[in-house]
């Protein structure tokens, strides 16, 4: 068995009396695509922020890429990539400027930047668009570019926060091809989504309800466990019991 890149034990975040994430314990392995599901307000974002070093846990432990979240948040930051639902590129910069900027702040050398950006542009088929402003690209391309930029420094884990919101099914499929590519290269992919077909693509799925992880297994096992035919029904059965209202 490989050593996990994410390992949490009873990871908890409280805001006053409110427990946003309660005793989360799970592991994610290199190259694994880990789906992180939950209704709005279930605590997904809070959990993700703790794992990214954006927010300090109230209690429990977590090791990301071999580093402790309390002691070395900076080391963690060097080893993770992050992409949010807002696709997170600078619209008034060109494609190439965005690539070089994000490569640059992750400390890539000029040579690395050159080879990496050439590679990336070719992979995405953007050879003729490098000097175009990102705002001129269609949404699907922006998202693919954002993902590629998020893994430009070859992180051990990439966190994707609802990366495919608002795009058509074809583009979503292409986006998942990129995710598989990254996974093949050994990058662990930690993804939140509301699309249940995407949940089926994951190696393992966890479902959060009211701050707790209520289920965690492969999609096949989950369906068996709840005796249903689709992830949609699994999710529905669990989320129905939620007491918290979505915000």
């Amino acid at each position: 068995m490989q050593t996990p890149v994410i390992k949490t034990e009873k990871l908890t975040k409280r805001f006053g009396d409110f427990i946003a994430a309660k005793e989360l314990s799970f592991e994610v392995y290199p190259g694994e695509i880990f789906g992180f599901l939950g209704a709005n307000g279930a605590g997904k974002t809070t959990a993700m922020r703790m794992l990214c070093g954006l927010s300090k846990p109230s209690s429990g432990t977590a090791t990301i890429a071999g580093f402790d979240v309390y002691r070395s948040p900076n080391e963690i930051k060097k080893n993770i990539g992050y992409m949010s639902q807002k696709f997170s590129l600078h619209e008034d910069l060109t494609v190439m400027e965005n690539i070089r900027f994000y490569g640059g702040i992750y400390g890539l050398s000029n040579e690395q930047l050159k080879t990496k950006s050439a590679e990336l542009v070719e992979l995405l088929g953007l050879q003729n668009e490098t000097k175009k402003l990102v705002s001129e690209l269609p949404l699907g391309w922006k998202q693919k570019l954002a993902f590629s930029v998020a893994v430009i420094h070859q992180p051990k884990i990439v966190f994707l926060d609802e990366p495919t919101g608002g795009v058509d099914p074809v583009t979503r499929r292409q986006f998942w091809d990129l995710i598989y590519d990254a996974s093949d290269k050994g990058i662990a992919v930690f993804v939140t989504t509301h699309y249940m077909d995407e949940a089926e693509y994951c190696n393992r799925v966890s479902i959060m309800v009211d701050g707790n992880i209520e289920a965690l297994d492969t999609p096949v096992n989950l369906k068996k466990q709840f005796s249903v035919n689709s992830m949609e029904e699994v999710f529905y059965q669990l989320a129905r019991g939620a007491k918290r209202k979505a915000d």
Binding site: K77, K78, Y82, K86, F87, S88, H90, E91, F159
Partner: peptide, 13 residues
């Protein structure tokens, strides 16, 4: 607003 701040904060910068 654009969400790029989050990316910057997650980066080692």
């Amino acid at each position: 607003e654009l969400g790029t701040m989050e990316i910057l904060l997650v980066s080692p910068f």
